[in-house]
Simulated scan of single mutants.
Amino acid sequence: MPTLGQNQYGKAETRVVRVTRDGATHHLEDLKVSVALSGDMDEVHYSGSNAAVLTTDATKNTVFAFAKEHGIGSPERFGILLARHFTESQPTLTRARIRLESYAWERVPTPGEGDHSFLRDGRGIRTAQVTHDTEDGWEVLSGLTGVTVLNTTHSEFHGFLRDRYTTLAETRDRVLATDVTALWRHRWAGPAEDRDWNASHAAARRHLLDAFARTYSYSLQQTLYGMGARVIDHRPEIDEIRLSLPNKHHFLADLTPFGMENDTEDGAVYFAADRPYGLIEATVLRDGATARIPIDATNL
Rank of each mutant, 00 (worst) to 15 (best):
P2W: 11
A12V: 05
V16F: 07
V17E: 07
K32G: 00
K32S: 14
V35F: 04
G39P: 04
G39E: 06
E43L: 05
Y46T: 12
V53L: 15
K60S: 11
A65V: 12
H70S: 14
H70R: 15
G73D: 06
R77C: 06
L82S: 01
A83I: 05
A83G: 05
Q90Y: 10
P91D: 14
P91A: 13
L93N: 05
A96R: 00
I98L: 06
E101R: 07
S102C: 09
Y103S: 03
W105S: 08
V108E: 13
T110C: 08
P111Y: 12
G112E: 14
L119F: 14
R123C: 15
H132P: 04
H132C: 01
W138P: 03
W138E: 08
W138G: 01
G146E: 11
L150F: 07
T152R: 07
H154G: 08
G159E: 15
R164K: 03
T171G: 03
D173V: 11
A182R: 02
W184D: 00
R185Q: 03
R187W: 04
R187L: 01
P191G: 09
E193P: 00
R195I: 02
A203W: 04
A203T: 09
H207F: 01
D210P: 04
F212V: 09
Y218K: 09
L224H: 00
G228C: 10
R230F: 02
E240Q: 11
I241Q: 00
R242K: 13
S244N: 09
L245G: 03
N247L: 15
K248E: 08
H250L: 07
F251W: 08
A253R: 10
P257K: 12
V269W: 15
Y277C: 12
I280D: 01
I280L: 09
T283S: 11
V284K: 03
V284E: 00
L285F: 08
R286F: 09
D287M: 10
R292F: 03
I293M: 06
L300F: 04
